[in-house]
Amino acid sequence: MDLVGLQLTLASDAGEVNILRGIDLTIAQGETVGVVGPSGSGKTSLMLLIAGLEKPTQGSLRIAGQDFGQLNEDRLALFRRREIGIVFQAFHLIPTMTAVENVAVPLELAGVPDAFAAARQALQAVGLAHRLQHYPAQLSGGEQQRVALARAIVGKPKLLLADEPTGNLDLETGAVVMDLIFELAREHGSTLLLITHDPALAARCSRIVHLADGRIKDDRLSKSPQFNIVT
């Protein structure tokens, strides 16, 4: 993943706001990167750009050999479907679908024939084989986030984006979910970009990028990574 001179400026009632002011970042396949920084530093915006959900105002972005500048909205969606899994802070499961249906969505959108078998496997991998037919409202917060994680990894993405994945969970449940995220990322060889306020959580990644005021303030290898498979 290559980010060169990435800038993001958004219009608001009070005039233009410079959210990202020039990000240069290269991440290797399989790296786990923790992005930390105070609120408003541009962490989430950086993730939106990497997910292809926002277009940079300036700069270039290349992921898995694909230049995002060349892709329109639908092509970006297609790319996301193939290469990127996202875990949200607020889970964002579809409330009218069961756990297994939620997990099968990305595969169904892609027209994968055995989407439900794969979904069941993914749910098994996050320890929810017994909750397949439950609706989100019937699941605890931790379980919902595990379903969301299963949904993110079911397509075996090259890049896993996690936006404050434990932000809505208690400590203990958060730890379980984080263990799963690291474990599954390693298992699939996915690059993990973890956005968090929690320095301890970031420290479990192989690399920590510190954002402040829309710029990279610090970019270093972690002293105590959970695992590190830099290729």
Binding site: L53, D74, R80, R81, I86, I94, T96, V105, L109, A110
Partner: peptide, 16 residues
């Protein structure tokens, strides 16, 4: 709307 946005995040195109 929220589910629609989620679907887009999961790779649904506008035409889908």
């Amino acid at each position: 709307a929220r589910s629609l946005a989620v679907l887009k995040c999961l790779g649904a195109s506008s035409s889908q």
